[in-house]
């Protein structure tokens, strides 16, 4: 009977089965699919940049007052670490990003769901949210500082605003475009309300939700630096503005490198989650 099925089934099946086998066994995987090549390829440019940086400073092509050497940045890092400031600044910045991201993304999910699922929600909320979204991020800073002072609240609020919009936009758009036929089929089989949402609509938009989360996380780091540059006594953004005032270029480089690393690490974590979601629900 199985043989019979294969005979009558359309060619897509055969292709799909063939693909699966290809991924599993893979005796002749192309170079670009091999792990070592991916790792080495990704590290190539950072290593190259670091070498050129070292070379330029060793040959004193640029004065160290304009471009500190990698060793000086490393020394600055050790010095700050000894005073306990490096750990503190990194921790406080990460904490602000995570809290602000959680609040912003959570609200983005809720508002995105309301606007995407209900026509009334769309009519009432979408224009106002669109207008708020159009306000450049830095325009909020003076207002937030007057209302919420220089405390944690003002920074976390700004980061939450930054994280809110990518999630809100992707979720509401994705929900509007869920396959109507699938939704109708769900209703025809007795699903409605929350059960319809969790069975059909939510799984259908999960991949978009996760890519929205990824964008939101990048925005959260962006808004963190904006918040800390303009009013903070701790954190990587504060390190940047403080070092600018003191002319400590080594620390500015250190802060930039740390922001790059932290941003990349958190992005990779969401990226792993995204891969899992795409595999499970995609």
């Amino acid at each position: 009977m199985t043989g019979n099925d294969t005979l009558t089934s359309d060619p897509r099946t055969a292709d799909a089965v063939g693909d699966d086998r290809g991924n599993g066994a893979a005796p002749t995987r192309p170079l670009t699919r091999r792990t070592w090549f991916v790792v080495v390829g990704g590290a190539l440019i950072p290593v190259l940049v670091l070498s050129i940086w070292q070379l330029v400073t060793t040959l004193e092509l640029v004065p160290v007052s304009q471009l500190p050497s990698p060793a000086m940045v490393w020394t600055a890092a050790l010095e700050l670490a000894q005073r306990g400031e490096l750990g503190l600044y990194t921790a406080i910045s990460t904490q602000r990003v995570l809290i602000g991201f959680a609040i912003g993304a959570g609200l983005g999910l809720v508002f995105g769901a309301v606007v995407g699922l209900s026509r009334l929600g769309d009519i009432l909320l979408a224009p106002s949210l669109g207008a708020i979204r159009a306000v450049p991020s830095l325009a909020w800073v003076p207002l937030l500082i007057i209302w919420l002072k220089y405390g944690e609240e003002s920074k976390i609020t700004l980061i939450a605003i930054g994280a809110f919009f990518p999630v809100y936009t992707t979720v509401s758009a994705a929900l509007r475009h869920v396959d109507r036929q699938l939704v109708e089929a769900g209703r025809a089989f007795g699903l409605n309300g929350a059960r319809l949402f969790t069975t059909v609509q939510l799984p259908a938009v999960l991949p978009s939700v996760v890519s929205g989360l990824r964008l939101a996380l990048a925005q959260a780091w962006l808004f963190l630096v904006a918040a800390e540059l303009l009013g903070a006594s701790m954190g990587l953004g504060f390190l940047l503005s403080d070092s600018q005032n003191n002319g400590r270029l080594d620390r500015i480089f250190l802060a930039i490198v740390l922001l790059a690393l932290l941003g990349k690490i958190t992005d990779s974590l969401v990226g792993l989650f995204e891969r899992w979601v795409n595999k499970r629900w995609g």
Binding site: L182, R187, A188, F189, G190, P203, G282
Partner: peptide
Amino acid sequence: FDDRTAVGFQEPRLLPWRSITDNVALGLPR
């Protein structure tokens, strides 16, 4: 969406993220 009826649509309209078993189970009465 009368529950005394069941519809076989022109298109399969299966949920792409569910297995065939779970898709068929969607039809079971509550």
